[in-house]
């Protein structure tokens, strides 16, 4: 039923390497790297929602922290953009701790509500603190500089090619970490509390702390995904913190199958590529997108990938 860790990583790596053969133009490297950036945030949701069963509707807030760290830290702290991304990740983990700690002791969907509020707060701050963030017009992000280093070594890549390869690599690392976690003591504790909090508690799992750890890890994923987006776009606007972006991240994970890394990445692919395909419907594009998602969730409630695998195996689940 489940692919092993090695098989999952192999499939993913093969897809990343082979896909460019079929690209009709350089533009698709750009689409591909966007897909990987989205997928990275979605893999974080797999840990939080798929493993631990908690829902966050504010992950765009963490993506924004990662993105704006890359814009602001090089200017104000005079650090390299890569260090800025790490600062963003640490900051996201700290903020996740502060937001999550009081909330995750409570049962129910408090985290969803609190994180939604957190995301909106971040986007308001970004839009209004014009002196620091540049406001709604956004702010410039410095060049990462890695492409020039590679060129010195004789590896000449276009900007789009570089970001395709780099984001793909980061996604592979992120998937590897998430897959390690799945079959580890921490992963088992998270999956256990997902199914029965009471049973997890009676065998000694500190449920509040375990949820907090999952929330912090997934916040770091979102933060790194935001950093990657900022560094490749070279410009970042408060839109990244918008709550539609948060919902999008969760929808991608749930659509593909939130229980598995590969399923979630599949969902991210569909939702990144579908709008490109649906442009033929012009003004009805959004309607078609909504329709496809509704039908998918009605007929394949466990997510696309698990349902398709089930159908192929003739179990018809």
């Amino acid at each position: 039923m489940r692919l092993s860790k090695q098989a999952t990583l192999l499939v993913l790596a093969a897809l990343i390497v082979v896909a460019p053969i079929f690209f009709p133009s350089g533009y698709y490297f750009r689409v591909g790297s966007l897909l990987f950036v989205n997928s990275l945030a979605v893999v974080g949701v797999v840990i939080l929602t798929g493993y631990a069963g908690q829902i966050s509707l504010g992950h765009a807030g963490f993506a924004a922290i990662g993105a704006y760290a890359c814009a602001l830290a090089p200017v104000h702290l005079h650090v390299h953009p890569s260090i800025a991304a790490i600062i963003g990740a640490v900051l996201s983990a700290v903020v996740a701790y502060l937001v999550g700690r009081p909330i995750l002791r409570l049962k129910g969907y408090y985290l969803a509500v609190a994180s939604l509020g957190f995301g909106i707060l971040v986007s308001m701050v970004l839009a209004n603190e014009i002196a620091i963030t540049g406001g709604p017009d956004g702010i410039k992000v410095p060049e990462l500089g890695l492409r020039a280093v590679l060129a010195d070594w004789g590896l000449e890549l276009t900007n789009a090619q570089f970001w395709y390869a780099f984001s793909g690599l980061v996604l592979l690392v992120g998937s590897w970490l998430a897959l390690n976690l799945y079959n580890s003591p921490t992963g088992r504790a998270l999956r256990g509390l997902h199914e029965s909090e009471i049973a997890a508690r009676t065998v000694g799992v500190d449920v509040a702390q375990a949820k907090l750890v999952a929330f912090m890890i997934s916040a770091v994923y979102a933060s790194v995904s935001g950093s990657l987006l900022a560094l490749q776009n070279r410009l970042i606007t408060p839109d990244i913190a918008g709550y539609m972006h948060s919902i999008e991240i969760v929808t991608m994970a749930v659509l593909g199958g939130v229980g598995s890394v590969l399923g979630a990445i599949f969902g991210a692919s569909i939702l990144t590529l579908l709008p490109q395909l649906l442009t033929v419907f012009q003004e009805y594009e959004q309607v078609m997108l909504g329709l496809v998602m509704m039908l998918a969730m009605i007929f394949m409630p466990r997510g696309l990938l698990p349902s398709i695998v089930g159908l192929v195996r003739g179990r018809g689940e």
Partner: peptide
């Protein structure tokens, strides 16, 4: 949704738990 073996392994949580970073890596 977990295997029979995993169910019992969660029971060993207090013995098998360790640093989260080690589990991630």
């Amino acid at each position: 949704a977990m295997t029979v073996l995993e169910n019992v392994m969660v029971g060993y949580h207090l013995h098998e738990r360790g640093p989260v970073i080690a589990d991630l890596l």
